[in-house]
Write a protein that binds this DNA or RNA. Structure first.
Lengths: 334, 334
DNA sequence: ATTATATTTGCACACGTTTGTATTTTCTGA
DNA sequence: TCAGAAAATACAAACGTGTGCAAATATAAT
């Protein structure tokens, strides 16, 4: 319970004014080299640590960045978090990660917390049911820099890092059509989110463009899970007209689909083509290897950080949108 | 860039002293109901947000908890983080997650940051090469409550939440022996970490206890990866005496082992029994299903939080160690 | 030695809150 | 109506830093 040592303690001990100590610690040229060394060595010896609350209160600086994601333990977000943490740390920033649990209310609470603590900036991927945008507006009102990534809030002007969901989905749909698949189903999330809406539109526009008759987009409102994936397959497979290919928006859904396909002895890719967003860890051991659409977490993290840093440093470039291209890794499932 | 509204702004506007506003906002009974309502409605209308830096500077309260893990995107840690975030948030605390990247230096930096920002407490699972413990000692010197989970620092007195690694590994080793396996290999991490050392000891003691001749513990110093898993299998399988079972400490290692076993047409469980720590997502689609030892992330998170809260509230119970039992889910791989 | 100048240090206030104490206002009862 | 109590409010200091400005000290130039 050792009371913490402050700048004034050092000053008293060394018979100088605390302002001199303050300057010495920050290598201000105005302080004599001799006294500076004295201060520094005393500080080191007594393990002085600056009190950031005081610094921030005074409004001088702040190096804490908040990161809000729907789910920390979702592999895409976990990867982005991990990369972002490293990038920021290396640049002298500290990242605090918050989880909205896909809930608007929680996201709002988090943002209040962020404002109260005076974070230097915020990077966010929005919750599923976060349609209202008042909380983001509040953030801007308080002058806190804001950057969106992946799932963005479209009626807020702020830098955004997005994935080329429309193009990539259009592209794989076209690929499937040209491979001869004619009844391609698409499983994705709620259209309220740009990510899933864009994928859906990419899919639908391509289907229309090539005059394919079968068009079937399933929107999952709940969290993606293996269980839901099973249900989706069952639903598709019990319909009068079965699909001959599926584009899935999530690894969990895909796993569920595979479970049921196996149970019914549906052959992939002969009877059913399959492409999924996300990376399949099980591809290492599972036959056939599934074609995946992989997001570039590192690039996304880097872009988001760079954009935020630009605003923090007043290189005003709001309303910029940076697109990171996803990559299709073609394998044996189609 | 709207300057943020403060307690004094409200006071000036309402012609009262700012101390009255302060009390009103915190529902102090000493302030008249009428003026309190006035203050509250004004604050609400102008979206007043308290400045936590000022509050913390004054030393009143603090609701920020730091969480340090080696890797955010490791599924075990991601799960613990996710649970912990929810538990804490519900109790009015805010969690900041930091990633040490398995590096002592980074862990140390993080702890300095935590001290500088006056966090209310710290929950940590230590980095692989974090043998020195001076940084944790520093934390205690500054009076910041500390709790370890999973990977603990043994020469620091602090509450710890651990998994029964010794017992569970001993138990599955015995299980394998009684099933008739006689050349059981064990793949794990560096003995510098309690988690892996305990598993190794549990394995070795059991092998000795039953007078089994074959005893082979491989310690991986690097990060666990599928690639390393492949190498481990190759090494084991090219030895003069091949194992007939493997206990693996990580899903990634196990995946690598499976890849090579498949390539060489090694039959599981006939030619090779297999048990792994961690949960295998691919079990849903892969035959045979692998027997897993699953850690209870939710219980671990809850226990860690409870212990921390106890110290924060001065229910002094340092030096307590709580054990959370892992669960073996027996499947077809042995 | 005496100015003039450069270097170093000290002073005082500010940041936004909280809280013990003093002061003012309101209420009560005779 | 007035003293006294109770309620409400105001005052002031403190938390740890940073910074413009003044003061003091050292150095240089004549």
């Amino acid at each position: 319970m050792n009371k913490r040592i402050t700048i004034k303690d050092i000053a008293r001990e060394l018979n100088v004014h605390h302002s001199t100590v303050s300057r010495a610690l920050r290598n201000d040229p105005r302080v004599n080299e001799k006294t500076r060394d004295l201060v520094l060595s005393y500080a080191r010896e007594h393990e002085y640590q600056i009190n950031m609350n005081a610094v921030q209160l005074r409004g001088t600086s702040n190096n804490a960045i908040a990161l809000i994601v729907p789910n920390i333990n979702h592999s895409f977000f976990a990867d982005v978090i991990s990369r972002l943490t490293d990038i920021a740390f290396q640049k002298g920033y500290v990242i605090s990660v918050f989880q909205s649990n896909e809930k608007y209310e929680q996201e709002k609470e988090i943002i209040n917390t962020i404002i109260k603590h005076n974070f230097a900036g915020v990077i966010v991927s929005i919750a599923k049911d976060s349609q209202k945008s008042d909380h983001f507006r509040l953030l801007k009102k308080f002058g806190i820099p804001l950057v969106f990534f992946d799932r963005v809030c479209e009626d807020i002007i702020a830098p955004k890092v997005i994935v080329n969901n429309y193009d990539i989905t259009a592209s794989v749909t076209e690929y499937l059509i040209k491979k001869g698949y004619s009844r391609i189903a698409h499983v994705t999330g709620t259209s309220a989110i740009n990510v899933f809406r864009n994928r859906k539109e990419g899919y639908q526009d391509t289907i229309s463009k090539f005059n394919v008759e079968y068009k079937n987009s399933i929107e999952i409102q709940n969290d993606f899970s293996i269980e839901i994936g099973k249900q989706v397959f069952d639903e598709l497979w019990s319909a009068s007209e079965k699909p001959d290919a599926i584009i899935s928006s999530s690894v969990n859904l895909t796993l569920g689909i595979l479970v049921q396909a196996n149970r019914l002895n549906v052959k992939i890719p002969e009877q059913l083509g399959l492409i999924t967003f996300g990376s399949m860890q099980s591809n290492e051991i599972y036959q056939p290897h599934i074609t995946t659409i992989e997001q570039q977490e590192t690039e996304i993290a880097q872009a988001a950080f760079d954009l935020l840093e630009d605003i923090i440093e007043n290189k005003n470039n709001e309303s910029i949108t940076k697109e990171i291209k996803a990559q299709v890794i073609f394998r044996e499932s189609c």
